[in-house]
Design a binder for these strands. Structure first.
Length: 241
DNA sequence: AATATGTGCAACCGCACGCGT
DNA sequence: TACGCGTGCGGTTGCACATAT
């Protein structure tokens, strides 16, 4: 496949290397997307009069212009979420970004590289080990309960697999609701009480009453008003179409 | 003050995948 | 089934600014 064109509107051989977006270009793109919606980026590039590739248009919109994006610095709570999820999924930035409303994969990726990768922080493997240790502790405590579940056909005694399968379920759900229906949010954030507290972990908690130990010792401080109802309302204002 | 080095982040590149034909 | 197109994703690069020497 031709990496230069890729069906993204404009060829790359136009002399520009890194060309920052100007306010006028941002305005053009914002107006175009507002009236025509997202998608069909190659036609956006052609029709809007922007001398940009569709790929560039999409990136600019997704990472900078899209309503609802946070422009503030990553909070310690968000950092904790990033660390935890990175330990689980590795460099699945877009997946991690789904659990940080208002943050983009690019932003998270940059944050990780600048704040962790360079400073010799615990490696992914180490982080994984840390998380796995916590999870293993829960496994031990649950063993008897798990055995009972196995008798009922539930032989999934690897809680990490549960995490992953649950995450996959969320991904599947989000894919199914790809058009941005708010059902996705309700699925992820039931009662909208904790905007940044994904359903995934609420479900994990339901697997074991001992998971409170994990919360109190982990990086996800649920007492922080990170996802308040008023924030959830703000998030609801986003145009999901 | 001048230069070197480090940091943060926007933007681009190349690959992979899904979908329609 | 094969192919082309549109899109998304992770990796990389380049640049502006900050800090150190």
């Amino acid at each position: 496949m031709d990496g230069l064109m890729m069906g993204w509107g404009l060829p790359a051989e136009q002399g520009w290397r890194k060309r920052p977006w100007t306010p006028d270009e941002d305005k053009l793109l914002t107006e175009y997307v507002s009236s025509h919606g997202e998608g069909r980026w190659s036609s956006v590039a052609k029709s809007s009069g922007l001398n940009r590739s569709g790929k560039s248009c999409r990136l600019r919109w997704v990472n900078y212009l899209k309503p609802g994006l946070k422009r503030s610095k990553i909070t310690p709570q968000e950092e904790g979420i990033i660390i935890e999820l990175h330990a689980l999924w590795g460099n699945k930035w877009s997946t991690i970004a789904r659990y940080l409303p208002g943050r983009t994969d690019n932003e998270i990726k940059n944050y990780w590289r600048t704040h962790f990768k360079k400073r010799g922080k615990p490696s992914q493997k180490q982080e994984k080990g840390k998380t796995q240790l916590l999870l293993d502790q829960q496994i031990m405590k649950q063993e008897q309960q798990e055995q009972q579940e196995e008798e009922q056909g539930e032989n999934d005694n690897d809680i990490n697999n549960k995490v992953l399968s649950q995450a996959e379920a969320i991904d599947q759900k989000m894919t199914d609701e790809k058009q941005g229906k708010q059902e996705t949010l309700l699925f992820m954030y039931p009662n909208m009480e904790n905007l940044c507290f994904p359903m995934m972990y609420q479900d994990i908690a339901s697997w074991s009453h001992t998971m409170d130990d994990l919360w109190s010792g982990g990086l996800w401080n649920l007492d922080e008003p990170h996802g308040r109802v008023d924030q959830a309302n703000d998030y609801n204002k986003i145009n999901w179409n």
